[in-house]
Amino acid sequence: MAGMRVAVFASGFGSNFGALADAAKQQRLEGASLELLVCDKPEAPVVERAREAGVDVFTFRPREYSSRETYETEILAELRRREVDLIVLAGYMRIITPLLVEPFYGRMINVHPSLLPAFPGVNGIRQALEYGVKVTGVTVHYVDGGLDSGPIIAQRAVEIADDDTEETLAPRIHAAEQELLPWVVSRIAAGAVQLDGRRVVVK
């Protein structure tokens, strides 16, 4: 999709946002542009990252709203005003309701630190270590309103060493995320990703 307009949702440090911003600056996103950062924590480091990258920011404090739908109504209006084509969830730590999922189904993706469907939800890295698997990784998938249950676009495997801990494994997982997520966004922007039911074909 030439000139695809992207909104990134994030809550924390923003390493995946940074990877996307770097890819955009280096013209590796097939013409996609980062139009907006949506963040539920105005003090989060990702907010400053966005400002340094010249990306507009929409912040809010969930506790100041009566419900998720209330603040999502404001977010949806902002996304529509900016004619956003794709939402990228990159470390956004809030549940998203159908109010946002339904109008953006097939145009909202998430990056998750495991090889889904294994280890969905929080602490995917810890879950993999505790289970004792030898290989884990990262997944980029469409968001369907379930818990990390949407159609899978792409995955990258990361081997687990016998002496790995969360502290040693996490940097390799995050590095894989920062490679895979911009690549997926570039493929979507190029019109090379086709969604058919649960099957996704990337050309």
Results as ranks from 00 to 15, higher is better:
D56E: 15
R68T: 01
V184W: 07
M108V: 01
V84Y: 02
R172A: 08
E130L: 02
V84L: 07
I87F: 03
A44G: 08
E30H: 15
L100F: 08
A19G: 09
D164F: 13
S66T: 15
Y92C: 11
G3S: 09
M4A: 15
K134A: 04
L79S: 07
R28L: 14
E74P: 00
I160T: 12
E78N: 03
G145N: 03
P120S: 05
L116V: 05
M4L: 13
A161S: 15
K41F: 12
R61C: 14
R187T: 06
S114T: 15
G121F: 03
L76I: 06
L29M: 12
I173H: 10
I173S: 05
A154Q: 04
R126N: 14
F9A: 01
G54I: 02
E83P: 02
R68C: 04
A175V: 05
F58P: 05
Y142W: 01
E48R: 14
I109Y: 11
N16C: 15
I96A: 01
Q27W: 01
Y131G: 00
V55T: 10
L34P: 03
G124W: 08
L20I: 13
Q26D: 13
A190Q: 09
R198K: 12
L129D: 08
A24C: 14
V184M: 05
V138S: 03
E64Y: 03
G137Q: 04
F60W: 09
V47T: 08
E52N: 06
R61P: 07
I153T: 03
Y142F: 11
I188L: 13
S114W: 15
E74L: 15
A10Y: 12
G145S: 05
R28N: 14
Y142I: 03
G14H: 03
R107Q: 08
V55K: 07
S15Q: 14
E48A: 06
V200C: 07
L79A: 15
R68N: 07
P182T: 04
V140L: 05
V47H: 06
L169A: 00
G191K: 09
R51K: 12
G145D: 02
D22F: 10
H112Y: 14
I152P: 04
P42V: 07
P98Y: 06
V140A: 05
L129E: 11
V133Y: 14
F119N: 00
A2M: 12
A32W: 00
P62S: 08
I75D: 00
V140H: 08
L37K: 03
L129R: 15
M1Q: 11
S66P: 12
V184I: 05
R187H: 13
P42G: 14
V111R: 09
R80P: 00
R94L: 11
E102D: 05
G3D: 08
V38G: 02
V140M: 07
